[in-house]
Amino acid sequence: MTRFNSGRRDTLRALAAAPVLTSLGASTAWAADPAPSLAGSPIKLIVPYTPGGSSDIIARAISNPLSEALGTNVIVENKVGANGNIGADFVAKSPADGHTLLLCDVRALSISPSLYKLPFDLAKNLQGVAMLAYSPHLVVVHPSVPANTLPELIALSKKKPLNFAVTAMGSTAHLTGKLLEEKTGGKWDYVPYKGGSQAINDTIAGQTDMLVNGMLATLPFVQAKRLKVIAVSKPTRVALLPNVPTIAETIPGFESGTWQGVMAPAGMPPAVLKRISDELLRIIRLPAVREMLVGQGAEVSTMNVPEMAKFIDNERKTWDALVKRTGLKIE
């Protein structure tokens, strides 16, 4: 069962009820050059992971403002499986008319071609629409684990491998664990799950020792002292956890995290693509949305269509190199 704290529920309710704020500049631009209408059929916003994770939180925060902006219902639908690839495949094979979108961890999607035999071609069948947010990973453990720093955790794991809850095999969290092993000699036994919320719940229950997961979904459980935070994967310390060291303080240059963005079937008409991209970039910057994300450890970090294309290409090369070095295979 997905667990939400009351503060998050209240925030999402407020966002759902809030009126959409359209800037004068945007209104004037569209008045001068009317955008294509998407009214009529509802828009499916596919989240390819279980409810309660970073992508799901953001999708539900933006769905009502996006619905108001585009003049049609936006329905968030979770299509879970194969580290997000089932949902991605559904979107890749949908009509490129703007009525089916994917909100996912774009970094994780960029990794998938290196690990899976996909039923779609990421480069040919999907295209970026808008990058919305970045959330660093937190390295957390069950409170009973006798380690308070990353070096202590590494030393403990060398005595006996720790059970590492993996949100999905082949996910960014999984590959971050592999990268930590490569850089430090740490030893983990990976325990696979079908989503972040399930992995969090089992680590809270003590069924697994440790977890790497996006800060947006994990921070509330750290604040409630149900998980103990060891390190954060952003290059610099985060304001919400000023006393928590970064991984980079132990491993210089280390960075990982989730990049939440919207993808669409390739071949969408340029005017429709621009309309949706512009609205998403405007909505994610709304004060209520920004404050919700910042308050839970995420950052509004935006990219437009060409910037996303470059990002995905770079990510594919970076993580493919790690997969080849470690010999990682998904059974």
Rank of each mutant, 00 (worst) to 15 (best):
A217M: 08
V141W: 02
A309G: 06
L241R: 00
A248S: 09
R9E: 15
L38G: 09
S277Y: 05
K158S: 06
L175W: 14
T236R: 08
G81Y: 12
A59I: 00
K183Y: 07
N304Q: 02
L156V: 00
F311W: 14
E279N: 03
R290D: 08
A17L: 12
V300F: 12
T236Q: 12
R282Y: 05
A199D: 02
L109F: 14
N73L: 14
P146D: 12
S27P: 03
V80A: 07
G177I: 07
M169Q: 14
K178C: 11
I46F: 13
A61P: 01
G327Y: 11
P34R: 05
S256N: 09
H142L: 13
G185T: 03
D105L: 05
L227G: 08
D10L: 15
D89I: 03
N78V: 09
N201K: 01
A155S: 11
L216D: 03
N85S: 06
I330P: 08
P242T: 08
I247D: 01
G25Q: 11
Q127A: 08
D278I: 01
L227P: 01
I62D: 05
V80K: 11
P36S: 04
K329N: 09
L211H: 01
S256D: 13
F254A: 03
E182G: 04
N201I: 06
R290L: 07
D209F: 02
R282I: 04
P287S: 07
V300Y: 10
E331A: 12
S110L: 10
W30Y: 11
S94A: 15
I284E: 04
L132N: 02
K93Q: 15
D33I: 12
N304W: 10
I200D: 04
S171H: 05
L175Y: 14
K187S: 13
S54Y: 11
F90M: 01
T50D: 08
D202P: 03
A17N: 07
Y193C: 05
W259D: 10
A69P: 01
E315T: 06
I247V: 07
A69S: 08
K158T: 10
H142E: 05
A298W: 06
I57W: 05
T203M: 12
V294S: 11
G196I: 06
K324C: 08
G327I: 11
R275P: 07
I276R: 03
Q207E: 13
G7S: 13
G84N: 04
N304T: 15
A18Q: 04
K317F: 06
V91P: 02
L179T: 04
M210P: 03
I312V: 10
V74H: 07
A61G: 12
T167W: 11
T72W: 09
E279L: 04
N314L: 09
L211E: 05
M131C: 02
A92F: 08
Q127D: 12
S171D: 10
A82P: 00
S233T: 15
N5V: 06
L115R: 06
D105K: 01
L122N: 08
L102A: 01
G40K: 04
S112L: 03
R285M: 01
V262Y: 05
T246D: 10
V289T: 15
A321N: 07
T2Y: 07
T50E: 13
L162C: 03
T167S: 15
W319G: 00
V139K: 00
L122A: 08
E249G: 02
Q260Y: 13
P270L: 13
K93Y: 10
K178Q: 09
L102V: 04
L162F: 08
Y49R: 06
L281S: 04
A266N: 01
P306W: 13
I75W: 09
